[in-house]
Design a protein around this nucleic acid. Sequence first.
DNA 1: CCCTTTTATAGTCAGAGCGACCATAAAAGG
DNA 2: CCTTTTATGGTCGCTCTGACTATAAAAGGG
Lengths: 239, 239
Amino acid sequence: MDGYDKYAHEPFAVTADLAVFTLRGGALHALLVERGQEPYAGRWALPGGFVQPDESAETAARRELAEETGLSDVSGLHLEQVRTYSEPGRDPRMRVVSVAFAALLPDAPEARGGSDAAQARWVPYGAAGPLAFDHDRILADAHDRVGAKLEYTCLATAFCPPEFTLGELQQVYEAVWATGLDRPNFRRKVLATPGFVEPVPGAARLTGGRGKPAALYRAGTATALHPPLLRPTREGRPA
Amino acid sequence: MDGYDKYAHEPFAVTADLAVFTLRGGALHALLVERGQEPYAGRWALPGGFVQPDESAETAARRELAEETGLSDVSGLHLEQVRTYSEPGRDPRMRVVSVAFAALLPDAPEARGGSDAAQARWVPYGAAGPLAFDHDRILADAHDRVGAKLEYTCLATAFCPPEFTLGELQQVYEAVWATGLDRPNFRRKVLATPGFVEPVPGAARLTGGRGKPAALYRAGTATALHPPLLRPTREGRPA
DNA sequence: CCCTTTTATAGTCAGAGCGACCATAAAAGG
DNA sequence: CCTTTTATGGTCGCTCTGACTATAAAAGGG
């Protein structure tokens, strides 16, 4: 931080880019916007925008998230800084440094075109063609981060509505990890972790399904997961 | 990334700040520089500097690392991006966005004042008074990140010279985690992890100490640690 | 030279955690 | 009434780990 006067510091543009994940029908989806102008016109990209002079990158990311999803209450959503991308030439027009965030959404409102985004769509993760700029890498990095944090934090509840069943919580893990989990073992692990979930006292149950109604739970107060919930070691049982 | 023309993007200055860690006498130290000018004149701060127009933040961090430590070969050192700090007002003079990195050094050359740094010193971690800017938080975040990565990666060898004993490797964990570990159990865990360390075939041994000479090991090729090496759960045995 | 100290290394044993199961309960659909 | 489906409860054995004991190989002091 020394030497302010000895370096000529070129001005940079700073943006906040978002990898917004949600579950739709048990499958992991990411929110993408279609670019209307060059470069990469017509290609899909991550939502994002410039950080304003009075904003932090986190604030800008949350503002963009609200604009892009159309959600009014975006304050409770989990937003996590992934990393910053600063390679020269990653934007052909100018020097842009992007701070990337991962956002986790419980419900998936149909994407509306935000005020500035021509078109926003939920795309199944992995089904997106090559994205604009280095957004393929940003999206992959964000996915890696979320998958890793599921192992040793209680982050999975951020994908769920306020009240959820253990089956829905398990679907989060299975969708992000792209693997199958044994249901009784998953139950045991989650319930044995104090503060991960707490049962809804009214013995409420979810209807609409076929089999036995499942008990409802709320997210607990714990944030860490000790010991961690490790994903199967490659040759695990198939889904 | 859309809307380039609709936003007035204020120019930002971008810096790379470094939390450089090493072990000196079994204790974790961080590299700090003394500020010569306002603001925070006379206070200690993390080494760092502006990202040049043709550099990525990683490149700038590595250049600053070489300048600040005086090391010639800085290419093999482990450098890890921690996070980016972008709150407005974190630098009273101008809008500065800092990308923070953690660097791990095996040996600790006596800090020389770099070309631009008035004075650089190794300070025991935790013994540094309040640092300039938000560098206390950056240093703490970097320490948290390194401590966490010791659990599920083979990062600890980055603190060690090319050949090291298992006792030295254990000291890394104990210094970063500020806890004591059972030596036989640590050995068993490390040796049971394929690719973590590999014995030096020449049955070489380290001399100079008091007791039985220890076998030497080199860092293996593995990067992940499955299952992880979890730190003791608070009420663990004292050091 | 013996004995103590120090450090490295090997081994033992019980309990926790987990993967792979099997069993039962409670709903819907025929 | 029976089958299907999903949720929930439990068992068994293996692995890993924490706590601990034992042996080996050096240095230092009498």
